[in-house]
Structure formats: structure tokens, C-alpha cells
Write a protein that binds this DNA or RNA. Structure first.
Lengths: 258, 258
DNA sequence: ACGCATTTGTTCGTATGTATT
DNA sequence: TAATACATACGAACAAATGCG
């Protein structure tokens, strides 16, 4: 309707240059930020549909095309999933075709059977300095430590050491981890309201130390792929740090460069 | 001008449903294919600007918005680079800020000095079966094999074994590799007209064998990161297969998950 | 130093196509 | 079949960045 700058409603974006603040930002970027805020606040939950583009355009008082461009970027970042004819949905680690979205390990023969998990340990602990630094905690702050094995066809292939932000994951126990069916990240979404959005990994080759060698049933010094992962939720807030040791005898870590 | 289906010109896209062929394809996808064809044929060379959006719209007899959407996707795939106010350019491995676009190795301390290279070997050879399979060759077809070291701060860190499609890279010698300043992929572009546009990697941890150990100055059995890479040019044609062995003592392979 | 032309970037509006329920 | 939602396509106007005269 309005080709002139719209009167800002309760949910309307800021007019450019109004606040003399940070800098100019295109309308669709402002809309993107508003949608992200609603995702973060839990207004639309994982797996649910968000309002239609037309509705959002009305709500934010912009054109449908501007909303589309905002959603395009959010879909490209895997925060939203578009389904023609059905709507736009909040991405989720649960109910995904591909379980384990972040796990890049692939069997050499391509046969991807079900993955078994065994939780070895899960306890609250004070964060070591390295973990504290990664998770933006003060050294000694509370953290949750998990140690677990992943089995492919009854063989131990991955040993994970996981450190979680202590306050966000208060109340997580080995029992809840064991009982839960489905990926750990789905549990985090559903039980703790923490969604993993993206992650950074650092890969190295290392020799197995004694405990890892025993758990993965290899000789000490056996070459293992070390995968350090820092996972982020909304607002680029780091909430999980883990180190995985992968036995790559019959699996590899796949990556796409472009 | 025309809101009706335009009369197809020499370069115009096919009208939908004309050929009863494969399937429906959106206009912008057809434009994308036409632009890709021009890139492949060398009509626009790496580093050069392609015609403006308005010009392309006139050439293909579609609207500027349709061209934009085609270019958007090509830019997202790193085939083209948009520069506001200047134009849209053909991506190149040369004259890039970041040399080595595909090399994900990063020093622990973040200090990225210049990389030195030493070509150990470069010769024509018959492709072993594994290589032949990867490059879509017949076993025994001609290939170019290169063996080289990469040095970071005068220390050998990467040992590469590279296999190239024999006919595409006819005439490549150790001397040309050594003399060329800049990334190998830039040489491939400029001297052989072959542009690498994407690659798939498989990562593993392995123990150093005797030759690798000597070249990388580590003990035999020392854990190394093995990086198998298959690189593709236009049309998803594989043209390079390489296996790199990385010493990750003070470097890591970085990866982004999203 | 200034303004102008060129090129991509943003935003709007509208109409129509395709997929789903 | 109809209603709804996303997808495609067009046209128009203005903004921002760049380079040239």
C-alpha cells in the first residue's frame, strides 16, 4: 500500500538513520534480525511453521519481496526450511531425515547403519581453563562434562568428550542422555531450549593415549582423527565444546569445498 | 517491454514445454545454464567482468531480475564475484586476497606467513586404477603425477601427491611448476584453461610411512592427517585427484558446519 | 573538487505458476 | 475444486559504490 516510508508499528523496523546509531542497514536485514529474535525467544518453536510471507509482510509493514529476501538468507543459514505449498518451518535437529546433521563421518562402503551410543560419564564439573575460554565462562564456572562412545555396527568408532555451558544445561544427567531416543542436539532443543545453529571444527591427527586406545579398542599411539568442535546458538553464543576422537580405519570425514 | 513470452532470439532460452524433453526448468535456471556455458567456453575469462545485468537481460530477452537471480546463484557457488558499482567478475584462483582457496590448513598461532613450495617430481605416467576411477579415465590412460612439499616457516608441513587428467594437462613440467609464482590452480587456469570450481575431500588419520616420514621430517608411524581431494571443473567433470599428508603438530584443518 | 554515468543493491507492486491440503 | 503458501517473473524507482571527465 504505502510507497512512502511506513509508519512504524509495534513490530516495524527502524527507519534508516533514525537512531544515529551503528550504521545503515538494508530493510531486509532488519527484518532478518527481527525474525531471528522471534526464533531466539521461542515465539516459533523448532519444527513449527512460521507465519506466511504475506502475514509477516503485514506484521513488519514491508513488502512480501523484502520478507522473502530475509527468509532466503535464513534458509541459506539453515535456520529456516522452506517447503513450497506448505510454509516455512523452523529448522530442527529432531525429525530430520539425516540424523546427526553435524557428524561428517561416513563409512567407506557407504552403508550407513544405525548408530549406537554409550554414555560413559556425565557430571557437573568446574570448567578447565581451555573450556572456559571457549565457552566464554570464567575459569572454575560450572560446566557439564559428558564422555561417550559411538558404535557403528557394534564397533566403537567415536569417543566424544563434551563440555556444555553449565547454567544452560542445568539438570542434564546420564540417565536422560541414555533414555532419549534421537540425536543429542534434539534433546538439547526439546529439554533445554538450546538450538545449535552452526559450529567450527579444528581437525588434527593424533596418536591414541592409553584411555582412548582402550575405549576405541586400538593400540596406544594408533592414529586417530581429533575433531575439536565449538558449537554456537543464536547470537553467536558458544554453548558446547567437544573433542571427538575418530577411528578412521573404515570411515572418513567428508568435506565439500567450494 | 514484452510481458508475453518473448520471441526466442539466437541466445534466447527455450520456452517452457517446447521440447517435450527432460522437464520444466525455471527461466532463471536456463539463464544460469547459458551463463555457465559462456564461462566454460571461455567467452569471459577468469578475472574479467561479464556484461552488465541490463546487457545480459537484453541478450537473453528476459528481465533484469531474472538475470539477477541466475547470477545470485552463480555467485553463491563462487563462479562469479559481484562488486557493487564495478560489475560482476569471473572468479579466479589468481589475484585473490586469500591465496590457496582450497587449503584449509591454519597455524595454531594464527600467523600466516608465506608458503614455500618444492616440487619433488613431475612426470607423465599411466594412471593407477584408483586414480583412473576417480578421474573417469580408463586404467592405463595418461596422467600427470606431481609430488611436492609445502613449507610453513621453513618447515615441511604438507606432502602432496597430485594426479591430473593427462590430456587436459599435456605439457606440464616440473620447471613450469617451479617457475610459476602463485597458486598452482592459478597456473592451471592461465596455462591450461582449466578452472577448479569445487572439490570433495575425505579426511583420515594415518601413520607416516617411511618416505613420507623422511620428507616431512617426522618419525615413521607419526600421525598425519590424510586429505584426499577430488577437484571438479565445469560440468562436474573431475580433473584432479590428490592426496595430501599434513603434519598437524602446529597446524589444524579448519571447517565450518552449518 | 564536483558532478555525471555506469553498475550493482534494495524495495516496492503486481501477476502468474506450482505444490499442498 | 478451492484455498493457501511458496516460487517465478516482470517492471519500476531509487540508493550506494565506483570511476571518469
Amino acid at each position: 500500500m504505502a510507497t512512502q516510508p511506513p509508519t512504524p508499528g509495534p513490530d516495524a523496523p527502524v527507519s534508516s538513520g533514525e537512531t544515529g546509531g551503528p550504521a545503515f542497514s538494508p530493510l531486509y536485514q532488519q527484518i532478518k534480525a527481527l525474525i531471528t529474535r522471534s526464533l531466539q525467544s521461542g515465539e516459533w518453536k523448532p519444527g513449527e511453521a512460521i507465519p506466511s510471507e504475506v502475514d509477516l509482510a503485514a506484521r513488519y509493514r514491508v513488502s512480501q519481496g523484502t520478507v522473502r529476501k530475509a527468509i532466503d538468507e535464513l534458509a541459506a543459514e539453515n535456520l529456516l526450511v522452506r517447503r513450497q505449498g506448505k510454509g516455512t518451518f523452523v529448522a530442527t535437529h529432531a525429525e530430520e531425515k539425516i540424523q546427526y546433521r553435524f557428524l561428517r563421518l561416513t563409512p567407506d562402503d557407504g552403508v550407513t547403519g544405525p548408530i549406537e551410543r554409550k554414555v560413559i560419564e556425565c557430571r557437573r564439573q568446574r570448567a578447565p581453563s581451555e573450556v572456559a575460554r571457549a565457552l566464554d565462562l570464567k575459569a572454575g564456572d560450572a560446566a557439564v562434562q559428558i564422555r561417550r562412545l559411538l558404535y557403528f555396527r557394534a564397533r566403537p568408532v567415536v569417543l566424544d568428550d563434551i563440555w556444555l555451558h553449565g547454567t544452560l544445561f542445568k539438570g542434564l544427567t546420564a540417565e536422560r542422555l541414555t533414555d532419549y531416543r534421537g540425536p543429542m542436539y534434539a534433546l538439547f532443543e526439546q529439554e533445554f531450549g538450546v538450538r545449535m545453529i552452526r559450529a567450527e571444527e579444528k581437525l588434527r591427527a593424533v596418536g591414541a593415549d592409553a584411555p582412548a586406545a582402550e575405549l576405541l579398542q586400538v593400540a596406544p599411539g594408533y592414529p586417530l582423527l581429533s575433531v575439536e568442535r565449538l558449537s554456537y546458538t543464536y547470537g553467536d553464543k558458544p554453548v558446547e565444546f567437544r573433542r571427538g576422537l575418530y577411528n578412521t580405519a573404515s570411515h572418513f570425514y567428508r568435506n565439500e569445498l567450494q
